[in-house]
Write a protein that binds this DNA or RNA. Structure first.
Lengths: 231, 231
DNA sequence: CATTGTATGACATTTTTATGACAGTTTTTT
DNA sequence: AAAAAACTGTCATAAAAATGTCATACAATG
């Protein structure tokens, strides 16, 4: 359920403050007092999110962020940077296109949590989401199960993510490329048309519960998940 | 669809940061590292919005803004100015020069996007894909649905774009060529009379909801979408 | 009522989507 | 570790829907 969030911050009091607040918000905080230790932790288990102090002993936050961006396995981890008021001016100079957002100290913990959620909602909704139910179709991200009237529907991982994405954004139309971006990830060396095939597979899975009509084709645009059957 | 937003900023990292965030918000970013290049780009295609750094090499942001304001074709483009904290006091001059809003660096990308949308909502609502409702006829660009009294009206992509265009510009009469330009795109080696056929198809689609009379023929001129039935 | 502009139905063509098969991978089972 | 099962992405082809044009019917105008 809770996303693993790595906090890299050399001031222990701030580190704790953040950790406690994240924990209370349902996340799993992972603590690191410096970049070296953070590295070790990342090597053990790649976190879902990183909160990075800009001023760190040894390697600076910026350099650390850059290294994270250049490594394939950590490239896509969202990063929020923390900076002191006085460093604000330098901050912008070093702000790599990689950082997703930043906060100036002192900041409210609520603000921090809000921004984390906002970024996660956009980049990895499955880490933040609760079970969704639409039209007797019930999807639970924690158990990875899709049910309808008690029966469990079978589908592959990609179809599950696709369905989750659609149920999270009902009624909206998405282009194939948008879907690729959100469901596959931003690598996109994948053919547009592959989406068609997975839509087909998802529809097949939903057919058992007569829910296949939920996914509609919008010609020339893309696909839409619509709770309104009649069209 | 997504508004074209020209970003004029000499610091490449900031330029990228903004561009990526705009892209993620559905806008189309256009990058310029200096005023001269921006000029060239504007000459090629007038953007819908400009984000302008206050401090630019060569010509300052202020001067650039003033020049934009004095030119007829660029006079009405909304501008957001970016300024460093230390320059905030001078900023008043920036607003004087015609900027619609400004932001102090460092700023959060979310804040920037929010302000852009706020300004667009006020100045050019048609660039921000929001639902339009006229006379019980409801069109939503995000869901690609046209509804009337709860029932969804079926139509092809071209008819949808045509209706969208009309609803964005109600009461005005448009010639067939103008319509071709706006709805089909400027390439159009397409026959004038093709518009007639699509108008017919659109009317057919609207007939189900008794809304067909909304589209009126203006003999010798073209067509008009009119919310007032009697005219 | 003749002229000019518009509506409409039919149709061939083009564009877009659905679908089944397949080969290479990865994961699970044995 | 080997075998079996499941999953992926890509293609080729079938199927469906949309498009633009044309000929003809219809309506408005003077």
């Amino acid at each position: 359920m809770g996303a693993n969030i790595l906090i890299v911050e050399d001031e222990e009091s701030i580190l704790e403050l953040i950790a406690i607040n994240l924990h209370q918000s349902g996340f799993t905080p992972i603590r690191a007092l410096n970049a070296e230790y953070a590295d070790k932790l990342i090597h053990e288990a790649v976190p879902d999110f990183i909160i990075l102090d800009w001023m760190l002993p040894g390697m600076s936050g910026i350099d650390f962020a850059k290294r994270l961006r250049s490594n394939t396995s950590t490239k896509k981890i969202p990063i929020i940077m923390l900076t002191a008021k006085s460093e604000e001016e330098n901050m912008i100079k070093g702000l790599d296109s990689g950082a997703d957002d930043y906060l100036t100290k002192p900041f409210s913990p609520r603000e921090l949590v809000a921004r984390i959620k906002a970024i996660l909602r956009r980049k990895a909704p499955e880490l933040i989401d609760e079970p969704i139910q639409i039209n007797k179709l019930h999807l639970d991200p924690t158990t990875y199960l899709v049910k309808s009237n008690g029966t469990t529907l079978q589908m592959g991982p990609t179809e599950f993510r696709l369905l989750h994405f659609f149920m999270k954004n009902p009624d909206r139309v998405f282009s194939r490329n948008h879907i690729l971006d959100k469901v596959w990830g931003n690598q996109s060396d994948i053919d547009d048309r592959t989406v068609d095939v997975h839509i087909k597979r998802l529809r097949d899975s939903l057919t058992l519960a007569k829910h296949h009509k939920l996914i509609q084709t919008v010609r020339g645009i893309g696909y839409r998940f619509c709770e309104n059957h009649k069209q």
